[in-house]
């Protein structure tokens, strides 16, 4: 496990990976979104508003997987004291918070023309809002201690506790009567027509790579900032 713990080894991987993720993600997202927004057909019922699918759904998937990643990072930070785990946790939290905010905002804009309302307090929308607040809570806890190690520990605990919200988001549309429709893509297939599904999956891959590049860049920033403060402390002591 600690084979990858060495920051030098991580940086050797992360430097090219952040660039590859960024440029690859930009290209794939551009193809996917162009495909969805300009080339894919309009929906039989929703018309043109369905084009918000290609940004809303990827950000929803990614903010949920980002939270799962946050919990994994928190778990490895707590159990194995993995030195990169709390860096990953601190890097993921703000990026995930932005993605969940984008999901909520695009969902709200999509809700107005289709449902006839910007917001309702149904199970899916409310649990997604809770996810956004969980991200904010993790950021706040990590910053609220003078000793950064302690803040990361508290944030890890919150990240793990918040994990229960993920199945609540996923199954909210089945457990309760919600305004939000049930899942379109399930293990048994997709109720999204192929002409819309493929651009959606392409956009999700591209936007996912962009998210990964943002997380990698933040991890590099945090590692460099730690190096700087360690060196300054050593200089002050000398």
């Amino acid at each position: 496990m600690h084979r990858f713990a060495n920051p030098a080894r991580f940086l050797r991987l992360a430097r090219p990976a952040s660039a590859v993720c960024f440029w690859g993600g930009l290209l794939i997202a551009a193809i996917g979104l162009y495909w969805g927004v300009f080339a894919a057909p309009a929906d039989y019922l929703q018309g043109e508003s369905v084009r918000m699918l290609y940004i809303h759904v990827p950000t929803a998937w990614l903010s949920m997987s980002g939270y799962a990643g946050l919990a994994i990072a928190g778990f490895s930070a707590l159990v194995w004291r993995h030195p990169l785990a709390d860096v990953a946790l601190l890097a993921l939290a703000p990026v995930g918070a932005v993605f969940s905010a984008v999901c909520l905002i695009t969902g709200s804009i999509w809700g107005r023309p289709t449902w006839g309302t910007w917001w309702v307090w149904d199970g899916r929308l409310t649990s997604m809002l809770v996810l956004f607040f969980l991200y904010l809570g993790v950021i706040a806890l990590a910053r609220s201690y003078d000793e950064p190690g302690r803040g990361a520990k508290m944030a890890s605990i919150l990240a793990l506790l918040g994990l229960v919200n993920l199945p609540i988001i996923k199954f909210s549309v089945e457990w309760w009567n919600t305004l939000h429709q049930p899942a379109s893509i399930t293990l048994s297939g997709s109720s999204i027509d192929g002409s819309m599904l493929w651009p959606l999956l392409t956009s999700a891959l591209g936007i996912g790579l962009l998210m990964a590049s943002a997380v990698l860049m933040r991890m590099r920033a945090l590692i460099a900032e730690r190096k700087v403060s360690a060196r300054l402390a050593r200089l002050a002591a000398a």
Partner: peptide, 13 residues
């Protein structure tokens, strides 16, 4: 409020 289902398809389909 209008609720829509999980089906997305082009008009021809």
């Amino acid at each position: 409020l209008a609720k829509h289902d999980e089906n997305y398809m082009p008009p021809e389909v």
